[in-house]
Design a protein around this nucleic acid. Structure first.
Lengths: 220, 220
DNA sequence: GTCTATAGATGGATAGAC
DNA sequence: GTCTATCCATCTATAGAC
């Protein structure tokens, strides 16, 4: 019955739609990172984003799909940054960077993102949470999508061709543990234990400490 | 109206009550460890334990109280075992054990408990989950109850009096990360990445690898 | 496309019979 | 003390008005 020529308003709508979707995305990432996946409801997200309750399902299909989309975007950004640094390290050393440079390419991106004045800080916390609280779908990806890690394993093996492959993998595993341990709660505990001596706010100093420890461990 | 002398049956009741409570405790620990805290309902627990739905509230007050009781029992058992090994290491070295013995006292208990044939395996998984999925009450305890860690920090400082205290704390922090990384999912990923070369089932070999890495890292 | 109202499902807790 | 039936809160997802 309605005139088929009359359609929705033009550009303005698209922009508004994109803005709503982005608002939901950012609010969800923030709340999930701060309070955990299960502790945040769709209602919390839409209230924070100041959009209507149905927006999550309209733009993302479901709460889980929204969660998964944030996860995919942030992990791929992080791994791309790591790959870039690894590639640059290779460029500085004829394609065979030393252990410390390889480790730095893995450590530095999440550390710098997590520094207090960086607006990606929240994304890092989200990713760390995904590792332990993620849905079955996310854990499936974490378990099976190891291509980005394979490049680091290969680089480490090339840097230490004398080391048995088995040792390379185990030590890489231990090194990954260092990164995953960078959670608010763990820093708080350390701060409490040390009587306030430790300051994780100094990102470059922390990076140096991590590299000293990991390099020595890897070359044990 | 009923005769006030007639009471509940004697000992049999106490035993049955204790058995019910234990059944709930064990079923809850198992399900929480396997599926996560938020993914297990009181209904799941009572079904698994083959007791009635009201048992959890009757014996423990609430789901959260049950969770907290399991957490307190298992962490105190684990820390007591670690303290015992640290004490024994001190006995072997005139009260000043070397770094490697200190680390072994921290690493060995959870690793041995987690070996496939040990019935404490499930308790270790429960404790690891508590660190990331625990209630605010549990995280409060984890953050503030650092007395068991203080003993390890003191021992490490005594073993390396030349090392600034700040370094001792940071390196201890990194070492703790190694232990927390011992989750099913992480081993799965490592297994996948390495093409099946790594076998975490060999507990003593894994312990040796962890000690090699951590000792070198600490002495970096 | 947005938003309200509500369906539909689940879970923690408890009252009350036995 | 045990167990069933049920209350009540909460959440995701969606239908339908505008």
């Amino acid at each position: 019955m309605t005139d088929p020529i009359i359609q929705d308003p033009p550009e303005a709508t698209e922009e508004a739609q994109a803005a709503t979707k982005a608002a939901v995305f950012n609010a969800a990432e923030r709340l999930f990172a701060l309070h955990g996946f299960q502790n945040v409801s769709v209602r919390d997200i839409t209230a924070e984003a100041k959009v209507n309750l149905a927006s999550v399902n309209y733009h993302f299909g479901s709460k889980d799909s929204l969660l998964f989309e944030i996860f995919r975007r942030r992990t791929s950004e992080l791994n791309r940054e790591r790959a870039r640094m690894l590639h640059e390290a290779g460029g500085r050393h004829d394609g065979k960077p030393p252990v410390r440079d390889i480790l730095e390419a893995y450590f530095a991106p999440p550390l710098r993102w997590a520094s207090p004045d960086n607006d990606r800080r929240i994304s890092v916390q989200f990713i760390i949470r995904a590792r332990s609280e993620g849905t079955a779908e996310m854990r499936e990806v974490l378990r099976n999508d190891v291509s980005h890690l394979a490049r680091f394993a290969d680089a480490l093996a090339a840097a230490r061709p004398d080391l048995p492959k088995e040792d390379v993998y185990w030590r890489l595993h231990f090194i990954l543990g260092l990164v995953h341990n960078n959670r608010f709660a763990e820093f708080d505990r350390l701060h409490h234990l040390s009587g306030g001596v430790t300051r994780e706010a100094d990102v470059e100093a922390l990076l140096r400490r991590m590299l000293d420890f990991a390099e020595a461990g890897f070359n044990a």
